[in-house]
Simulated assay, not measured.
Amino acid sequence: MSQPVSLHHLVRQFAHPGRLEAIYLRPARREPVVQVQQVEALVDRGLAGDRAAARTPWRVGGNKRQVTLIQAEHMPVVAAFTQQGHVDPAWLRRNLVVSGLNLLATRAMFKDEPMIVRIGAHVMLEITGPCEPCSRMEELLGPGGYNAMRGHGGVNARVLAGGHIQVGDAISCSLPLAL
């Protein structure tokens, strides 16, 4: 008879790496996002060219919303909830669009076992919590847009290790022991 698998083991188990589908930078509040093919992730700051990275960190490690990530698989769900044929990820103003890796599962479940999201060869992010929708979703998606995004708004992250990322990079999740 096999040993039961622990919850600590299960939360580290992912079927396969995901993929970085798109990168968006928000140059300033309420300005249109700019889609790029590659960008530099800056430790404790965010993505070069994004308004989050332009701010001076007010504490060691920077704030908890340096980079925002959203699940590509959630776009059809949001479209269905808003009765739109298509939802462009640019409308949602998240930095990174990820497919193939459940972003909600990348947040640490145990305080003593933080999880690290790796993008490409060098970049490491710590998922800090959900990226809640703002009232602007009503503007962009129509009536009910705010509620359509609840639970589908993605996650916030801090940059632990910087470097170059580009569309098509693999995204995986691991324990920080492999830093």
Rank of each mutant, 00 (worst) to 15 (best):
A72Y: 05
A157C: 05
A105N: 07
H122N: 10
Q37P: 04
A79Q: 09
A54Q: 10
Q71L: 01
P57G: 13
D50V: 08
P32S: 07
G85S: 10
E113K: 14
L125W: 02
F81P: 02
P76W: 09
R55F: 06
A48I: 12
A41L: 01
V34L: 15
G142P: 10
E126Y: 06
D112P: 09
K64A: 09
E40I: 06
A90C: 09
R158C: 10
E138M: 03
G154L: 06
V117G: 03
Q38H: 09
P133T: 08
P76H: 05
N102T: 01
T128E: 14
A48P: 09
A79P: 07
Y146M: 04
R93H: 08
A79F: 07
Q35T: 10
A48E: 14
K111C: 14
L42V: 13
Q35E: 15
P143L: 12
E138S: 03
P76I: 09
T68C: 03
A80P: 10
M75H: 14
R51V: 08
L103C: 00
Q37H: 04
G151E: 12
W58P: 04
R51K: 07
P130M: 02
Q71M: 00
L42E: 08
P89M: 10
E132T: 00
E132F: 02
Q35V: 11
S99R: 07
M149N: 02
G154W: 02
K111Q: 15
D112N: 10
R45P: 13
H122Y: 10
N156G: 14
G144R: 07
D88I: 02
V33L: 13
S99L: 01
E73P: 02
M75A: 08
R93S: 09
G129N: 08
E138G: 06
L140K: 00
L47Y: 04
I70Q: 08
F110D: 14
G154E: 08
N147Y: 04
P57C: 08
M124Y: 00
A53I: 10
V60W: 06
D44I: 06
G129Q: 11
E132A: 00
V78Q: 14
I119T: 01
G153P: 05
Q83M: 07
A90K: 12
L92C: 11
V123N: 00
G151P: 08
